[in-house]
Design a binder for these strands. Structure first.
Lengths: 234, 234
DNA sequence: GTTTAAAGTTGAGAAATATTACTTTTCTGA
DNA sequence: TCAGAAAAGTAATATTTCTCAACTTTAAAC
């Protein structure tokens, strides 16, 4: 049974929304008229929390973490965005500053679309407006779900859950024999789960002892998704 | 110094968004053509998680908790909605089922607006579309902030923070001498903060010993907001 | 007003999580 | 390819948070 059949109500952030994919060509032409592509190295920052947005970003290829930094300079990952996703548009729409920062999780190609072109397309294209509303509502449901998860699940449960979610996001990284490699630093994993790196490492080696996953350097290969789903109490 | 000056970037959920307030009259006429008002008692459920929405709700007067229930039947409050706010529209827009439940926190008057009228207004009114996008983006920022709070702050910090936020929400409940009374059950407070009732009570009495608040039955009166802000590490 | 159920409070021990200090492994660039 | 740096992993200890049980107060119903 696939993950998607198991969880009919999609609040687990399994499928990422691709807004641009089915945008009509004439709208796409306006939106992408002045886009500029740029390559980002692993860890490179795309935009910073509290700065004023001058445009939005489209992930042509790669993965991006959206995160916040607290008073103690500790970082917390809110969301992992994947190839095909649009980021940074919340701030443009709400007229505020960026509520979070974004940085590349791996070498990525990202297109910058100027604010003016985005807003222009929004006034012209009924499709984009409707589509954004839908996407935002959906993202909201996902986030609300994350909130109740993190508040009520133990660190062990949260880690298991994130591994299941990350496995879906890393499905493009295949090994021989259709296993998925999750390639993420323990620090990033920790700030995604909301705990310290040491706890992540300790629980990972417990899961390894159980035979639910194996590691290959920093890479994590999930061997028994169902066991993790059970631990996560999903 | 007021709370709003102190936190210029509104991600703390201090001001609640009132979508209907400045909606043009002709749009409002369509939207409210078939609305029906109803009184809800404290604790009464307005809609249930996972059910199919047949319309949206407008809080004419009162307060509403939006919450989720987990596998262990424990409830977690995601958001406290106030007079003037619109709830339940996410599900209509995204075409999904309700991602959360809603119940009255106090005796409230709530108007029901049929799904068809809402969608009809949305196609007719450019204003409503734009406004909803803005509101959703804002709500998203608030929620993302809550997520990073709950993941990284201690229970003590979270409780202090929620007290500051709730004080703003309960500003209509004045006592003599412009103090604000927060009138919320310890259970609800606990599920808002994400902990057990006992912990809430314990920390509340510590805050009381410090002289930062007083209690009057279940009611909480904040005496020193700045001290709480400091504890919350906001 | 009295009764009674619900809500609130407190303390102690158990469990989970965080912190500190350190070792080992992996990666990177000269 | 090898040294140094960065990341990953381990263990012991400290701290926080949870759970359970007993008890008190409050509020609603009669």
């Amino acid at each position: 049974m696939s993950i998607h059949q198991k969880f009919p109500i999609d609040q687990w952030d399994f499928k990422s929304e691709s807004i641009l994919a089915d945008l009509p060509d004439e709208d796409k032409a306006i939106l992408l008229a002045n886009q500029t592509e740029q390559e980002y190295d692993k860890g490179e920052i795309i935009f910073r929390e509290n700065s004023y947005p001058s445009g939005i970003f489209y992930i042509v290829k790669g993965k991006v973490k959206k995160y916040k930094i607290d008073k103690n300079r500790k970082e917390h990952i809110i969301y992992v965005a994947n190839t095909g996703e649009l980021i940074g548009y919340h701030a443009i729409i709400s007229g505020d500053r960026f509520p979070d920062s974004a940085a590349a999780l791996e070498k990525s190609v990202i297109a910058f679309i100027p604010k003016e072109d985005f807003l222009q397309t929004l006034t012209v294209s009924a499709f984009l407006g409707t589509r954004l509303l839908k996407t935002l509502s959906h993202e909201f449901a996902v986030l609300a779900n994350s909130l109740s998860i993190i508040a009520q699940k133990s660190v062990r449960e949260r880690l298991a859950l994130q591994l299941v979610v990350l496995r879906e996001k890393y499905k493009d990284h295949f090994m021989e024999g259709n296993a998925v490699e999750i390639n993420m630093s323990r620090d990033d994993l920790a700030s995604l789960v909301g705990t310290a790196r040491e706890n992540v490492v300790r629980i990972l080696s417990e899961f390894k002892d159980e035979g639910w996953l194996m590691t290959k350097g920093r890479k994590i290969i999930i061997l028994d998704v169902d066991a993790l789903i059970k631990v996560a109490n999903m």
